[in-house]
Structures are given as structure tokens and as C-alpha cells.
């Protein structure tokens, strides 16, 4: 599981600009970033992957926390997470391949959500590996386009935010 910081920010172009601008100008070498809506339309949640070998997650967190548009930064390193990725995969699909594709989709508990003249769209949900694998299996039919959410994650069974400040705690 990657080491993620979950960052809740105001849902606006300006606030995203500020977050990405900060990461760039502080030369904080973060990994992949995923962005999701939350239950509150005013918020967005970013999952920012950090590699402690390259950058101290504490540094990323404390810098982000200086931005007014950042509402919360949670360090999820020690959390158990539910992680889901959603992908829509458009495959080349003449009528004679439909059954085969539908069967394949079933193995992955995926669904065909659009039927075109020459194409099908398959929706697949699950772990990153499962989605990767499903897309790989669909390749032989001819994948035209893939769009995926990237990992959406939530901490399991915890009522409080994971705000533990390990760095200052370690020193204390």
C-alpha cells in the first residue's frame, strides 16, 4: 500500500492551483496524486502519494497545512484502508464477441454499461490490481479508451481523523 496523505481542500480551481503550486515551488517530490469529490460539494479530497525515502511526509504535510484552502491533512501510513478503483473501458466489440466479453466481465464482477454498434463499455470496480488485470484481459479485443478514477480510499472503522503527528510524537 502506498504511503498516502489525504488532503481535504476547497473545491475550486484556485485552491487546486495553490496546492500544486506549493508542491512545485517547495520542490517536494511527491508521487501520484488522485482527486475525488466528497460528501460535501464544497470539498475535494486529494490522495497524495509520498515516498519517505525521497521526502519527509511531515514536510509535505506541514507545508500544505499553511495553505488557507487546505482544510485537513491526514497521514494514512499506519491506517488500514478500503481502496477502490473504478474504470470505464471501451473495447472494440463486433456482435460476435459480446458473449465472450460479457463472460470475461463477469469473472471480474464488471458490467457492460454501454452497447454501441462496434463497441462496448465495461465498468470495472475493485482494487488497483484487479482493475489492471481486467483491462489487460480486455486488450485482446482491442481497447479503445480507458478512463479510471484512480484509487479512492477510506480509513477502515475509525471515527476520528488520522491526524496523528508522528514526528513531534516521536520526539516527545
Amino acid at each position: 500500500m502506498p504511503h498516502w496523505l489525504a488532503v481535504t481542500v476547497e473545491n475550486s480551481v484556485e485552491s487546486l492551483n495553490r496546492v500544486f503550486h506549493l508542491l512545485r515551488r517547495r520542490h517536494l517530490p511527491v508521487g501520484e496524486i488522485f482527486m475525488h469529490r466528497t460528501g460535501d460539494p464544497q470539498d475535494l479530497r486529494l490522495l497524495i502519494e509520498v515516498d519517505p525515502a525521497r521526502v519527509d511526509p511531515y514536510r509535505v504535510r506541514t507545508n500544505l497545512e499553511k495553505l488557507l484552502c487546505v482544510k485537513a491533512v491526514e497521514d494514512w501510513r499506519e491506517c488500514t484502508l478500503v481502496v477502490r478503483d473504478v474504470a470505464l473501458v471501451k473495447v472494440r466489440a463486433p456482435a460476435e464477441t459480446w458473449v465472450e466479453i460479457a463472460q470475461l466481465a463477469e469473472f471480474y464482477r464488471a458490467r457492460v454499461v454501454d452497447v454501441g454498434a462496434e463497441t462496448l463499455i465495461v465498468e470495472v470496480t475493485g482494487s488497483r490490481e484487479k482493475v489492471d488485470s481486467c483491462i489487460a484481459r480486455l486488450e485482446r479485443f482491442g481497447v479503445i479508451e480507458v478512463i479510471r478514477s484512480g484509487p479512492m480510499a477510506m480509513v477502515r472503522g475509525q471515527a476520528e481523523a488520522a491526524l496523528a503527528d508522528r514526528v513531534t510524537e516521536a520526539a516527545a
Binding site: D56, Y58, R59, T62, N63, E65, V167, T168, A171
Partner: peptide, 17 residues
Amino acid sequence: IDPSEIHKNRRADVPLI
């Protein structure tokens, strides 16, 4: 007073923020 200064250039043994 700025938490992001702690450990920025030099590791602190005891940070007092």
C-alpha cells in the same frame, strides 16, 4: 513557530513548536 521549519534543513532532536 512554523512547524514546516522543523527538520527542514537539520533534524531536530527536540522540536519545540
